[in-house]
Amino acid sequence: MEYHEPRNSTEAALHEYKSGLGVFTQKMPEIARHYNAFTETCFMEGTLSQKQKHLIALGIAINAQDEYCIIYHTKGCLDTGASEEEILEAIGVTAAFGGGAAMSQAVTLVQECIVELNELKQ
């Protein structure tokens, strides 16, 4: 894998994740193909909307302290039309379950992502 400068933005983190996934896909194409098909199916519109599914995934990512998934699903929330208030409410539920560790990710990384991703749209 090529060298990457330390991450300093949401956009850089998303690029780093996609780059790493690309390398993995080249090395393990069958695993990547099956994983991608599975996750695409999980996030398809169904009884729950894609927005609801990204809000759930964001809460799980925050509770798991998974920085890349926090960024990815914050973007997914915004891309599927979630408002900042909906995201913050989901964070509150996550913090009720995950305590201070979940809240620390929510009040820093998620809020930074919302600002940066909204700036990229302009």
Rank of each mutant, 00 (worst) to 15 (best):
L55G: 08
C42Q: 11
K121Y: 12
G46R: 01
G59H: 00
G59Q: 00
Y35F: 07
N36F: 08
Y3G: 05
S19H: 07
V93W: 06
H73I: 00
F43E: 03
H15V: 02
A61D: 15
A32W: 06
F24Q: 08
L55T: 07
R33A: 15
S49C: 01
T74H: 11
G99Q: 07
E30D: 15
G20E: 02
R33W: 05
V115W: 07
L58T: 09
E116Q: 11
Y3I: 05
S49E: 15
H73F: 01
M103K: 02
E30N: 15
E2M: 06
T39R: 12
G59L: 00
E16A: 05
H4Y: 10
Y68F: 14
L78Y: 08
I87V: 03
A101D: 11
R7S: 10
T74G: 05
F24L: 14
N8I: 07
Q65V: 07
G100R: 05
E85L: 00
E112N: 03
E5K: 08
Q26K: 12
K27P: 02
Q105M: 14
Y68D: 15
Q50C: 09
C42Y: 12
I70N: 09
V115N: 08
A61V: 10
L55S: 03
I70E: 13
S9H: 15
Q50E: 10
Y35R: 03
L109Y: 13
K53V: 04
G92H: 09
G22M: 01
C77Y: 07
Y17F: 13
G100Y: 03
L78V: 14
L21K: 09
A13F: 12
K75C: 01
G46K: 05
N63T: 13
R33T: 12
Y17N: 10
M28L: 10
V115L: 05
K75W: 04
L58F: 11
E11F: 01
R7I: 12
G98H: 10
V110A: 01
T25L: 11
N36S: 14
Q105N: 11
E116C: 07
G100F: 07
I70T: 13
S19G: 05
T41V: 11
M44H: 03
A101L: 09
L109G: 08
K51L: 06
Y3N: 07
N118F: 11
V107F: 15
A95S: 06
T74Q: 03
Q50V: 05
C69L: 10
G59P: 02
G99Y: 09
G98A: 10
G76A: 09
F43D: 08
K27F: 07
M44Q: 12
E2D: 13
H34I: 03
S49I: 10
I56N: 15
H54L: 06
I31D: 15
F97Y: 04
I87D: 06
E119Q: 11
R7F: 06
L14I: 00
E11Y: 04
Y72M: 06
V115H: 14
E16V: 00
A12C: 02
G98M: 10
